[in-house]
Design a protein around this nucleic acid. Sequence first.
DNA 1: GCCGTTTTCGGCCCGACTGTTTTCAGTCG
Length: 576
Amino acid sequence: MVARALREMALFLEMQEVPFKPRAYEKAARTVQALERPLAQIEVESGLRGIDALPGIGKGIAERILELLHTGRMAELERQRDALPIDVLGLTAIEGVGPKLAVALHRELGVRDVRDLERACQNGAVRGLAHFGEKTEQKILRRIGFLARGSGRALLGDALALARVIEARLRGVPGVQHAAAAGSVRRRRETVGDLDFVVAARDTPRVILAFVEMPEVAHVTARGHTKALVRLASGMDADLRVVPQASFGAALAYFTGSVAHNVALRRIARQRGLKLNEYGLYRGSRRVAGRSEEEIYDALDLAFVPAELREDQGEIDAARAGRLPVLIEYGALRGDLQVQTDWSDGAASIEEMARAARSLGLEYIAITDHTRDLRVAHGNDEKRLMQQVESIHALNRKLRGFRVLTGAEVNIRGDGTLDIADAALAQLEVVGAAVHSAFRQSRRDMTRRVIRAIENPHVDILFHPTARALGQREPVSLDIDAVIEAAARTGTVLEVDGIPERLDLKDEHVRKAVNAGVALAIDSDAHRVGQLACADTLGVAVARRGWARASDVINALPASRCLARLKDAQTRRRRR
DNA sequence: GCCGTTTTCGGCCCGACTGTTTTCAGTCG
C-alpha cells in the first residue's frame, strides 16, 4: 500500500514535470517494496529514524510514510488526486502510456481510467490528438487486452526453458559471435516479466531477421537497426539487442541489470571520470573496457559480480572489498533429499527415479514419500513405510555407484506434532517435515507449530518452509526470523525446494539463513523423472541469489558425510 | 527529495525506438 502511494506520487510529480522528485519517490517505492519486515514493525522498533535510515528514504518521505501508516491517508497525495482525478497507476501500467500521455488524454478527452481509454481508442478519438495516430491506438488496445488476461509475469522455470531455446537459435545464426539471455532470467528472479537477449554479430540485419522470424514469435512489436521487440506465442515479450563484439560485455551487463545495480555501477564510473553505457566503459571518447563483463568490473576495481547477486543489495560494497562469497556452482549438488515416488503421489517407481537421478550425475537421492495424514497423496503409514525401507535396501544391493536413502516427508499437524510415530522415524535416514494443511493459521500459531516440528530430534529438514505456490497460494503466515533462529539452535536443515511453483525458501530467506549459519538442502521435490533437474536449474539458482556457498549446502556433500551431518544435528537435538 | 571515495550544496544514468512529424517528445529498458 505504501509503495503504491509513493509510486503514485512519483507519477503525479512527473506529470507536472517537477524535476528530480519523481525519481526520489520512485526509488523510495522500490525500497519499500523490497522490505522484508513490515514498515509498521520498523516504526515500532526504531520510529521515524528507522524509516529515515532506509536507502532512498529521507526525512520528507519518511514523514509521509508515517502519516499514511497512522492515518491511512497521505494529504499531499490526496491533494494531487483532487487536482487531477485520474487512475495514474492503472493508465501507466499500459505499455506505451506514461505520465505525459496520461495527462494529455485526460486534458483532451476526459480519460480518467483504463476503461475510458479503451472506449476512446475504440471510438478512434485518440488518433485525433497531436502526436498520436492509429498505430498508437491499436497498440494501447492490444496492451489493455494483455493486462486483462493476467499479471504478465512467467515462472522462472518456464522463462528459463524458453530463453535457452531462443539462445540456442541465436547462436545458430551465421555470423553470430556471442549470444546470451540477459535480464531478470539471467539473474534468476523467481518470476520473469520479459526476455532479453544480447548478441554480438558481424551481420546485424541477419540476426534481427532470424529473431523476428523464429517460430516462437507471435507478433513483431518493433524492429530497428540494432534491436527488435517481439511478443512470443507464450504471451511474453522478448527483446533483442545486437552489438559489436567489442561491446558485448558492456551490453550484457547493461541488459542484465538490475537497474539499481547498473545505476550504482555508473555512479562509480562517473566518480572516476569514466562513462558507462551499453557500448562500453569510456574515458572521454576512448573505450577502456567492454568486451567482457569481467573487463568492466576489473576496470572499476570491483570483483566480478555473479548475475544472481546484481540487485544492489550490498554486492557492490562486497565486490569492492573483495568479500563476495564464492557461490555454490551449478552442477555442485551430489544428492537430492526430497523425491516422491509412486508409493505416494509420484508418477515413477523408486528405481526409475534413482536411475534418472544417476543419469543426471547425482550420487544419491532420499525417497521422501508423503505420510499418513495426506490421504489425497496415499501417504504411507508406519507399516508401509517399513515395507518401503525394505524395498530400498533391496534396490541398493542392485544399483551400482548410486545410493538410495530411506526417508519420508511427514506432515506437521496443526499443533506441531507429526503424523508418524517417533519409533518409525528413527528407522529412516532422512526425515523431512512439512506443512500441508491448516495453511491459514495465525502467524503466532504457525510459527509455534513449525518450531515445534523443528525441535523434534527426528526431523532433519524442514521442507518448503513457507508452503507457498507462486501465482496460486500465498505463503503461510510465518515469522521466518524465528524459524531461522530455531533452525540455527537445533541444527535442523532448511530446504530450498526447486519445484518451479515453490522456490521455497526464497532468495531473501536463504540469505538470512546463511547469515545465521543454518545449513541448507537444495532439493527437487520431484514427483516425476523430468522434475529431478529442478534442484540444479532452479534450486541452486535461488540459493545463489541468497548468497549461499557450497559449504552451506549439505547435499553438496557425498552421501556419507551428508548423513553424518544429519546425525550430528540429531544428537544435538536429543541432548536439549 | 535524496545523498556523500568531488560531501551538507549541487548534483541527480544513458541511449534507442516509435510515431508522428520535418526536429523531437515520450517511453522504455
